[in-house]
Nucleic acid binder design. Sequence first.
DNA 1: CGTGTTATAGAGAGATGTCTCTATTATTGG
DNA 2: CCAATAATAGAGACATCTCTCTATAACACG
Lengths: 205, 205
Amino acid sequence: MGRPAKYSKEQILDAAAILTARGGPTAATVVAIAEALGAPSGSIYHLFPSRDLIVATLWIRTVRRFQSGYLDALAHPDVRTARDRAVLHVLRWSAQNPDDARVLTLHSRVELLEAWPVELGAELETLNDAVESAIVEHVRLSRGATTADAVSATYFALVGIPYSAVRFAMSAGEPLDGWLEAAVLRASAAVFDDPILTTSQKDTP
Amino acid sequence: MGRPAKYSKEQILDAAAILTARGGPTAATVVAIAEALGAPSGSIYHLFPSRDLIVATLWIRTVRRFQSGYLDALAHPDVRTARDRAVLHVLRWSAQNPDDARVLTLHSRVELLEAWPVELGAELETLNDAVESAIVEHVRLSRGATTADAVSATYFALVGIPYSAVRFAMSAGEPLDGWLEAAVLRASAAVFDDPILTTSQKDTP
DNA sequence: CGTGTTATAGAGAGATGTCTCTATTATTGG
DNA sequence: CCAATAATAGAGACATCTCTCTATAACACG
């Protein structure tokens, strides 16, 4: 019923991802996306009501794509294995999805879009909930109890540090494996060598 | 000789820094800078020939400001002390200069400006030379000889990791001291616990 | 006190981006 | 084959940004 769609939302998001990854936060203009698809700009607005919504949807899609494997990795019952797998997932997922990784790392959410669409407010609010819960759960498993500092430090070790390696590799042109993988694993693990993080249950090798 | 200047280049760069730090790479428009100074946009062009040159000059100024203390820290004769001081300088300088730090971390140089002014080409080329030399020298002091991987890893440990903490703190609203300082020091130091980095001269605690 | 000099003031030209609105095209079901 | 439907096509209104150009203001020096 009706004319078949020539362009899809996914196509638009794909084009927006590539443009953003390679040209910065402002590169994904509606005109540029339309050109990438060989469409006039009006056709884009048939699928997305605004540019902001394209960018916001791209952000959500990218975060979700990253999170699925990350949560699996962190769910491993052995605490140490979970840590290593989570860290490695950041590196390997980024290596396999360089454009998505660029969207996530080169550009922080705040600078990607100053005014986030209200329609997606709720979704954006809860976007990180799954990872946050998983981190809290991980801290509980490691220590028996949680504190705000322990959760923050764990977040830093299991997300912040591996992402710094992704940024580093992307700007330096280094491959995301070899010595860098090993270095990130050591750096991340070292964060846990702290009395504050290991009071109730000692993590011994 | 002539009317006294009401606005200075420094004032313009200060306004651009604040705008960029708080509103992202595109926030420092000439109009916005002019408004911040209470001047019409034409007056800005009397001091800077183009917006690109404002942003590029701001970048150089910010990097230089950061580097001066960093190089001092890294110049300490004791290798271990040099490392710790360098790492701490990143954290403390960022805490004391939050807007400058935001310019440096929230936005990578590439996304700040796609086309860098040719006039500053040479300056931008050599901007990191001093730090790179210092890192190479540090590696030589630690190991007796240098390899590309060792230099990269050192760069990651002494710049990448501390900056990831700055980003982390800025987006999470954590203070840049306390447990985070300690965690970063451990994470950074752990990168050096590697045979590749310690072949000729062992770094033992 | 006037002249030369240097800076600011402010309007506006031209480019680019977002978004709207109408016309047109392709398909499906009767 | 003929509606009904749902999509694309494309022009253009409106906003904003960069940069230019001319007029005007303030100060130094003789």
